[in-house]
Write a protein that binds this DNA or RNA. Structure first.
Length: 329
DNA sequence: AATCCACGGGAATAGCGGGACG
DNA sequence: CGTCCCGCTATTCCCGTGGATT
């Protein structure tokens, strides 16, 4: 039933046609257009909730630019590379030599200088999930390199700006802003139709696609993975409503699983505890953790861990300060 | 108003990998 | 080769802030 697996890889696949993001794509193209003449483009911030095509739009726009201009491009996911060194390394690697650099023994400044010296032509860097970045001053330093154009992607614009100091903030406030909103059901249906055409051997009725779109609540990642799961389940090539209803929770679980697999051991035990013992406040949570994990992390460290889990949408922090409770998702 | 509990920024510190130098 | 030093990362320590409770 599935002709091309990669069409359903929501992290990397860029569709042949990008639909329902024409407006956003135009804004991006305009921001990048000076590069056609060899000048630097405008820095751009793409925001919006998860699964609304932020990454795909950015990648699509940059790929388009590559066909028209002499430009270097790089995509960096800051969830994986939130540490300054790794980030700078990935930015340097397409343009300069990195093999003589040794982990942790080269200063940030050395990397920055080398980036500065290595850029010869316009260079567009997509920084995905940029709110995860440890040191926002880095953005300031990168912004100061004239050839470099940054596309920042985040689902929490306020939090990104909150951690920036004013100097950095003002640089980016004046850049281009692109906001992607949730998809409507009919938009999701059309997106799914595209994936059906590109990735499946058989057609799927519009009614079924609508049902998937409905369940996905505006999130294209969930919708696409649900379609994929349903197609896997339907061995005879016919997608029924029953199959869809089974596939959607599977897809959601799978997406969640994918993020939690990137956690470190102490973070997963913490997640287990929160999931198992329901809404917990800090005072209740720590004894449980100490009991379970055997290591004695401080309350402060646990707060940091919980913050991270919340950022990954694995737990939810309800309420503020004193009344805060953590719930597993 | 006073106390409690928790949040989260930032400084200090420990540990690690790796180069430089004798 | 052994020692020293440097820079990054993770963790703890310290502390000002602020909502909730009494």
């Amino acid at each position: 039933m599935i002709a091309r697996e990669e069409v359903f890889d929501v992290d990397t696949f860029v569709p042949a046609d990008l639909i329902h993001r024409n407006h956003e794509l135009n804004l991006l193209s305009t921001a990048l257009s000076p590069i056609l003449d060899g000048n630097p483009g405008s820095n751009t911030i793409v925001t919006g909730p998860s699964g609304v095509g932020k990454t795909t739009t950015a990648r699509y726009g940059v790929a388009q630019l590559e066909t028209e201009a002499d430009v270097t491009t790089q995509y960096v996911n800051c969830w994986d590379d939130h540490r300054p060194w790794a980030l700078l390394h990935d930015i340097l690697s397409p343009i300069g030599k990195v093999w003589d650099l040794h982990r942790q023994s080269t200063a940030h400044d050395v990397l920055l200088t080398r980036i500065r010296e290595s850029v010869e032509k316009p260079y567009v860097v997509i920084l995905d999930e940029v709110d995860r970045i440890d040191d926002t001053d880095l953005l300031y330093s990168l912004d100061a390199i004239p050839e470099l154009t940054l596309i920042l992607i985040t689902n929490r614009e306020e939090e990104l700006f909150a951690t920036m100091d004013e100097r950095v903030h003002s640089r980016f406030r004046s850049g281009v802003r692109i906001y992607c909103d949730h998809y409507s059901v009919s938009e999701l249906v059309e997106i799914l139709q595209g994936r059906v055409r590109e990735g499946l051997q058989y057609g799927v009725t519009e009614g079924i696609l609508e049902r998937i779109a409905d369940h996905a609540a505006g999130d294209a990642r969930v919708a696409i993975r649900s379609l994929y799961r349903a197609a896997k389940l339907a061995t005879d090539g016919v997608l029924t409503t029953d199959v869809v209803d089974e596939a959607v929770p599977m897809a959601r679980g799978e997406l969640r699983q994918k993020t939690s697999s990137r956690l470190k051991p102490h973070e997963s035990t913490l997640l287990e505890i929160v999931r198992e013992h329901g809404p917990l406040k800090m005072g209740e949570l720590r004894p449980l953790y100490l009991d379970e994990a055997g290591d004695d992390r401080t309350a402060r460290s646990l707060r940091r861990d919980l913050r991270k889990l919340a950022d990954y949408n694995l737990v939810e922090a309800r309420g503020e300060t004193n009344g805060r409770r953590y719930v597993g998702l």
